[in-house]
Amino acid sequence: MSLKRNFFAGVDVGSLAAKAVILEDGKVFATGLVPSGFDSVESGLNALNLALETAGLKKEDLTYIVGTGYGRVSAPYANKAVTEITCHAKGANFLHPTVRTIIDMGGQDCKAIRIDEDGAVVDFAMNDKCAAGTGRFLEVMAGVFKVKLEDLGALSLSATELVPMSSTCTVFAESETISLVARGEKPANILNGIHHAIANRISGLFARVGITSDVFFSGGVAKNNGMKTAIEEALKVTIVKPEIDPQLIGALGAAVLARNFSKKEGLWS
């Protein structure tokens, strides 16, 4: 019997960030997260190389790689490509087997995913044309308030009241926000309104696929506690506390699938 160690990698190239996770023996061994550049092949490789460097491994040490995210179509380093919907399901199930519903808010889209006890997707829905509920929308809002993206959530949670936001169109919300600031509303209260408006908007996705506990929040926006709180209020649920950076869940799921595929293909036993 071979004593060779087996490492599996998942690489998730999204619109704003590229993420990589290396898995060994059912445990997260190393991770890498870099901003996405113009070249999605290079972005994916940068994330993977960062994870390899952290792990002290070379690419040749990896048994199998699965690519996911919008960059998966141009991932020559990967053995297989899988959509991020399937990967988020696998990743959340790997960390928390009791999770049945996932809210994934990434750079350019938002997904409601319902899964079974094996982490298989049962149903899903995505935002179609509207950018509300995406990292890109929040990026625009951070620009309006001249604060860092990662500080938006905390600022929103410091609100003393909620200023209603009538538009969730990225362009119109920006002009509405500017006019609210001009009227003297406090930035924290406006942001509180924005977070709740987005949470209400994405609730519609769950009307289609349903919500079953436990609920998991993944993607880059999941790092925003203000959004987490707003979603919990809108959907009347409690979101499971993630064990790792929620932005890495897609890459983690891809690594889990890399492990499964390579076993099925007889690359290890």
């Binding site: 179509v73 899988v82 959509t83 919907i85 997707v121 899903f124 995505m126």
Partner: peptide, 13 residues
């Protein structure tokens, strides 16, 4: 890619 992402995820499902 938006459209095909949905279709591919549906096939995987």
């Amino acid at each position: 890619e938006q459209l095909l992402n949905r279709v591919n995820a549906f096939i995987e499902m």
